[in-house]
């Protein structure tokens, strides 16, 4: 059962990722990315990372993608038109580098790893949120606190940059 679900979610994830980079309309790309993130959450569930699956849907598919869609709407973008020899060359080079990377990665990763999970979770253990919380507040307490500072700095920075105003305008060249 689990391998079938894996193949399904994996196909969905790869298809959605391809649609993200192939589609001309940014809004459609963003919606495909949401679907891709949801299928990734499904893969997390198969890997018994329930907490991360929920966080994936709430934070990524919810918050981050809403931010993306809001900015796309705000900027009122037209469909991307790409033509000319420059685009063709860049596309060829990009896909070529991608193919080389993919072959490299598959050659590296196809070896036998451990045949299966080293241990099954004990009976009656549902979810790993408690365990993650314990780890987060004991061994990873310091990084966790640093994370809060990072988020604060990002918030202040986003407000400052996004505000625009006099400081930004005066940096325009030729004025």
């Amino acid at each position: 059962m689990i391998p079938i679900l894996f193949v399904g979610f994996a196909a969905l994830l790869v298809g959605c990722s391809l649609m993200v980079i192939l589609h001309r309309n940014p809004v459609t790309s963003a919606l495909w990315l949401v679907l891709g993130f949801v299928s990734l959450a499904g893969l997390y569930l198969l890997l018994q990372a329930e907490f991360l699956a929920m966080v994936q849907i709430i934070v990524y598919a919810g918050a981050i993608m809403v931010l993306f869609l809001f900015v796309i709407m705000y900027l009122n973008l037209k469909r991307d038109r790409e033509e000319g020899i420059g685009h063709l060359m860049r596309r060829t080079i990009g896909w070529g580098i991608g193919a080389v990377l993919l072959v490299e990665a598959v050659l590296l990763l196809r070896h036998k790893w451990v045949p299966g999970p080293l241990a099954e979770p004990g009976e009656g253990v549902w979810g790993n949120t408690i365990a993650i919380g314990r780890l987060l507040y004991s061994r990873y307490l310091f990084p966790f606190e640093i994370t809060s500072i990072l988020l604060l700095v990002a918030m202040v920075g986003a407000v400052l940059i996004g505000r625009g105003g006099v400081g930004v305008k005066s940096e325009r060249p030729g004025e």
Partner: peptide
């Protein structure tokens, strides 16, 4: 049981799609 390499190769595929993008 899903072999570990399947997950890793899937991860590599998604990463390469991101690079190409």
């Amino acid at each position: 049981v899903v072999p570990m390499s399947w997950y890793l190769i899937l991860s590599a595929i998604v990463f390469v799609i991101g690079v190409v993008g």
